[in-house]
Every structure is written in C-alpha cells, then in structure tokens.
Nucleic acid binder design. Structure first.
Length: 423
RNA sequence: GGAGAGAUGGCCGAGUGGCUUAAGGCGCACGCUUGGAAAGCGUGUGUGCGCGCAAGCGUACCGUGGGUUCGAAUCCCACUCUCUCCGCCA
C-alpha cells in the first residue's frame, strides 16, 4: 500500500515508478478521488461541529425546561445531510484506497529494468559447477531408485504435486529443517517461532497476497487460508503494533509447511518434487527501522547463503529485474542453486525488502527512541531456505555413481550419524 | 458443542442517553521545592484525518461492524476475542 502523501507530493514520479513496473499510471485518478474525499470530509466535519453544539444546547434546554423543538428539527435535517456527506466521503475514500492497494510496491533505484526473468542480473556465483565422472541423475530418478521417494502413493493419497518420502530421505528432510533453524537461531540471531499454518483474511491482506493473488492460495471451508509461506504469520506479528525502536530489529524464523495452489503453473515442473502443493520451508522475517532495512536485507541474504555454502551446494545470487520483482517487494535477491541432474539453476531462496509497503497495509509502526515520532516499520522476508528444494539440491549435488547420496557433514549429527543414504 | 460473564486510554479502573470529545489512581515527562534524593505541589501526557507556516482549531475513535436518537462508552442487532463451568478431544 502506498502513502497517499507520496502521490500528492510528486504525481509524476509516482507514475514513473508504476510505468517502470509495467503498471498503469494512475496518480490523477487517485488524486481526484482524494480531493473528492477531502471536500466531503470538510463539509461533513462542519456539520458535525454544528450537530455537537446543537446537542449540547438541547441538553441544557431539557434541563431547564426550555422549548427545544426548533433545535431538534434542525438536528433532524443535519442528520440527513451528514448521512449523505458521509457516504460520499466513504465512497471516495474507498475508491482511492482500492486504486492504491492494487498497485505494486515502488522499486528501489538499483533494481535493473526489464520485463521478464531474462533481465535478472547475476551478482555473484558461489562455488563451481561440479564435473561428475558419471552421468548425473535427477532427484526423482535417484529417489525412486532408492525406494524412498514415492509419487504414485502421493497421487493415491492426495493427487499430483505431492510427494511421499520414506526412510533416509524422509529423515533428511527433517534434518534439513532442524539444521537451518539451529543455524539461524544460534549463529544469526533469529528467534525461533511456531506459528499457525491457517490464517485469516487480514493476515493475508497484510502481506499483500490478498486481494490480488487469492487464486494462488488454498482456502478452508470456514474462510481461513493455508499459508503459502511463514512470511504471512511471522510478518503479521507486527500488525497493528507500535514497537519501541529499542526493540528493533525483530528477527524471527520458523519452519512451516507451505501450501500453494500452483494454479498458473500447469505443465511446469510436473516431474519430481520441485513444485509442490505442499512443502516445508524455513522462513526468516525482519522488522526494522527504515534506516536499517538496506543493511538488514544484505545480512538476511547472507544468512540464506550460509545455509547453502555449509551444505556444499553451488549457487548464485541474482537481483530480480523490475518485471520479475514480486508485488510487495521493493528489491529482491533470489538464490539459485545448481542442480547437476537437471543441469539448471533453480530458485531455492528469495529475500525481499518490502520497505513500508506491507507495514502500511497492516499498520505496523514503531516509535522513535526520543518518543517523538511514529512511523511505519520496514519488513523483510527471506527463505532460509526452502527445505524440499534443499533436499533435491543435496541429492543431485552429492549423488554417487552407485545412486547413493553422501550426507553433508553438517547434517550428519541431525541424521543420527548416518553419512550416506543408500537403498 | 452447551451455559454464563466480560472487552473503556501505556496500566488499573469509574461510567445504564445530554453537566464526560471519559472521573479517579498508577506510570511517564517537564517544572517548583531540596545540599542531594524521597515525599509533596503544579503542568502535561493517545491515534487517524481535515484546515493552518506555526501555535493551534475541528472531527472521528471506549473489541469490530451495523442500527435507534436532536444527542450513544451508555440502548438495539450481528460478529470477533477473552475468562469460568460442562461435554468432547491430540
């Protein structure tokens, strides 16, 4: 959600920011609704002031036994006039609001231009693509050969885009989640949280999945939503709060299941467990002051990179271009891991600075140290990292000629000492 | 799921139609007092929106959303959440 004051202050700049996003320039529509609201509100408030004075006068009249019928008649007239003005003000406010809330966040100046993911820029590659002395297999080939990755049974239980894991791979999924949580809580200063996986409308609106992206989500019969990421419950912990600056930054992490309808991705990544309706992810969320969000963004991305480095994975950091940056983000780094079996870079983490965009929607604020000013916080979220995709990457990266998987050193303690997964 | 009670400012708490745009207390801030402190005294102390260079003025907000009324924290309706008891349950 944008600040209407930013539109008033510089409509041309506001429109240019939208055009850069591929959105329609609409500052004049917003401003005319805003003007309409202000006029109605000013007129309404004048009437309200008169009504308050009248009511006081009538009250005094009743006590002294004076005749107040003329005043009461004026009050009745006023009431009807106010009702009309109020609905006018509300309608204009709603119109301005719905225009504003449909607009994507403003991009940071250093986000590269471009319409699609082809224009994303690689910032840095970590590690070299391994050259295996045998033909690398894809994770589902490895997993099915091990008898530990079962898509047929998953389809029987739930349909396509689900996976059943067994034995060592099931355990490695658990190990990965535990390992990442421990890393972020012990080394990176995050607080471990356990949060609801079902949330209400307000929460999903706050992080801006609603109203535009409802079709990407699963909805329960009692009107709740399955979270597509723990970003939703974690970030909304700040909703409606005024946080003392001394408490910031909040650094929160949680392991959660994530549910996505994948409505728009028919036919994409249908084999294997790369794109699922349900997957696990460790999420990091930071709530900061505006001055600190840039540094926090870099820091958070490093926290995610540390996970991949410590698992011996090859990956690169890219900055998403204007057209590929998500609706709520001002700037996003994706981490793409190299999958030797698939011979492709695949997203495994996405770290975004949303600045005050989500904070405005959920009214998350902070009070400055001197107590004098109140402002919206900046919110950031990042995967640290997607557990299912980390499992895939570990399998494809550390596969052996015989189809077994070497367990990365850091995971061995979480695997009860098991160093290799074999059939 | 059944029965009952409740939701008021940073906190406690009064308030069943006008003298409450919320008493009183606590906390906090500033000042006076003091050798210094405590106590005491005084003043101030929310958020949004509109107008204004500003000081300030107006207006809305007593869980949320509607309604009745000249006038609603107070009356009516719906919903949400909390607590107590009962039932069920990992």
């Amino acid at each position: 959600m944008h600040d209407i004051r930013a539109v008033r202050a510089d409509p041309a700049a506001f429109d240019n920011a939208l055009i850069r996003r591929g959105a329609r320039a609409c500052s004049s529509d917003i401003l005319s609704q805003d003007e309409r609201r202000k006029q109605a509100q000013a007129a309404l408030q004048e009437k309200q002031a008169r009504r308050n004075a009248l009511a006081k006068e009538i009250g005094q009249g009743k006590r002294t036994g004076a005749d107040t019928s003329a005043l009461e008649a004026e009050g009745t007239t006023l009431r009807d006039e106010m009702a009309a003005l109020e609905s006018e003000a509300v309608a204009a406010d709603l119109a301005a609001r719905s225009l504003l809330e449909a607009l994507p966040n403003t991009l940071d100046a250093d986000v590269p231009d471009g319409a699609s993911e082809d224009a994303n820029m690689v910032i840095q590659q970590h590690g070299q693509r391994p050259v295996l002395p045998f033909e690398a297999r894809q994770h589902f080939e490895l997993g099915e050969a091990l008898g530990q990755m079962d898509f047929a049974n998953a389809a029987k239980l739930a349909g396509s885009r689900f996976t059943v894991l067994r034995g060592g791979l099931a355990r490695m999924e658990r190990a990965l989640g535990q390992y990442m949580l421990d890393l972020h809580t012990r080394q990176h200063g995050y607080s471990e949280m356990s949060v609801p996986f079902l949330v209400n409308d307000a929460a999903v609106y706050g992080t801006a999945q609603l109203p535009k992206f409802a079709e990407d989500l699963f909805r329960t019969t009692d009107g709740r939503w399955l979270i597509p990421t723990a970003e939703v419950p974690l970030t909304n912990l700040a909703a409606g709060e005024v946080i003392p600056e001394a408490e910031l930054p909040w650094r929160l992490t949680a392991l959660s299941a994530c549910y996505r309808s994948e409505a728009g991705s028919a036919g994409r990544d249908t084999r294997g467990m790369l794109r699922q309706h349900q997957f696990q992810k460790v999420e990091m969320v930071s709530i900061t002051t505006p001055e600190n969000s840039d540094a926090e963004h870099e820091r958070m991305t490093r926290c995610a990179e540390t996970v991949l480095e410590s698992l011996g994975l090859v990956f690169r950091r890219i900055v998403l271009c204007a057209g590929d940056t998500g609706f709520g983000a001002a700037k996003t780094y994706d981490l793409e891991v190299w999958l030797p079996g698939q011979q492709a870079w695949r997203e495994i983490s996405s770290c975004s600075n949303c600045r005050d965009f989500q904070a405005r929607r959920m009214n998350a604020r902070y009070r400055s140290k001197d107590g004098k000013t109140i402002g919206h916080v900046h919110t950031l979220n990042g995967s640290g990292v997607a557990v299912g995709r980390a499992l895939i990457a570990v399998m494809e990266t550390h596969q052996q000629a015989d189809g077994s998987i070497l367990v990365p050193e850091k995971l061995v303690p979480y695997m009860g000492g098991v160093e290799r997964i074999s059939a």
